[in-house]
Nucleic acid binder design. Structure first.
Length: 267
DNA sequence: ATGACTTGCTATGCAAGA
């Protein structure tokens, strides 16, 4: 089974690239973030013509998450919103049951700057994500995936000093991401590619030619429950989707899972 | 130069992204 997570930075602006990816890569599940449309305005019809059904949690202009699947999804999401999140109206969490998995698509708050209310809200959001993770892991096979907006280690940034002590790589954020993993999840990418450098980056600033200078961050993650983690055969960043015509500032992150019941790649 | 793009807004410059 092939899963992809991608912050599309507006599905309206990105529809040609989204359709390109679905046709070329044929993911079984696609978790999208920053769809930036209301549920009513979500392009269900075009996606259906491409062979995908979707559950969404969106709001006008900002944020918004979705799960797409080649198998028909229930019209209603398995869960909408993250219990305890600071502002449920921001539309940052949605869950679907697909291919025997509970799949959560998440867009963690950016945090703007340390010592802002937005940063405090980011930490609170991550704390509740850890609580939700524990519940999902206890429930069964699960994947929490999306734009987590945290670099787990210094190796996950092109130049840790370039972050100027700002968000995404503070101890406070890393401790809270670690707590999410401690709930029983595995960083699927690092489980198979522990030593990758800049090929692991999933976000590159639009400005200054950052992509072509390979100056990015690894902030999009696939976090898998133990049963799913054992099925991870490969993981990769699809860098070509970060360039070309009207790209998102994030590259898609793919994970290939062995079929349920088959042995996963031991690494 | 902690800017450099890109997006959506009810705009004609701005906030926000990370």
């Amino acid at each position: 089974m092939r899963l992809v997570t991608w912050n599309v930075n507006s599905i309206s602006a990105r529809m040609p690239r989204v359709l390109e990816l679905l046709a070329a890569e044929q993911p079984d599940v696609a978790c999208l973030q920053e769809t930036r449309v209301t549920d009513a305005a979500f392009p269900h019809l075009e996606l259906l013509q491409a062979g995908y059904t979707a559950v969404t949690h969106g709001t006008s202009s900002r944020n918004g998450v979705a799960v797409l699947a080649r198998e028909p999804l229930d019209a209603a999401p398995a869960a909408v919103g993250l219990p305890g999140e600071p502002d449920p109206s921001e539309a940052r969490w949605v869950e679907a049951d697909v291919a025997g998995l509970r799949v959560a698509s998440v867009y963690v708050p950016n945090g703007q700057a340390v010592d802002t209310p937005a940063f405090a809200d980011k930490l609170t959001f991550l704390e509740h994500a850890a609580e939700r993770a524990a519940k999902l892991v206890a429930h069964g096979p699960a994947v929490i995936t999306g734009d987590v907006n945290v670099c787990p280690t210094d190796a996950d940034a092109w130049d840790i000093t370039a972050l100027h002590g700002g968000t995404h790589a503070t101890d406070a954020e890393r401790e809270r991401l670690a707590a999410v993993l401690d709930a029983g999840l595995v960083d699927a990418y690092r489980s198979v590619r522990p030593h990758d450098g800049n090929e692991a980056f999933t976000w590159f600033d639009y400005r200054g030619g950052a992509y072509h200078r390979r100056e990015g961050l690894r902030i999009d993650h696939v976090l898998a429950s133990p049963h799913v983690a054992a099925r991870v055969r490969d993981a990769w960043v699809a860098r070509p989707y970060r360039k070309g015509s009207k790209p998102s500032d994030h590259a898609p992150l793919f994970v290939e899972l062995a079929d349920d019941g088959q042995p996963g790649r031991a690494s």
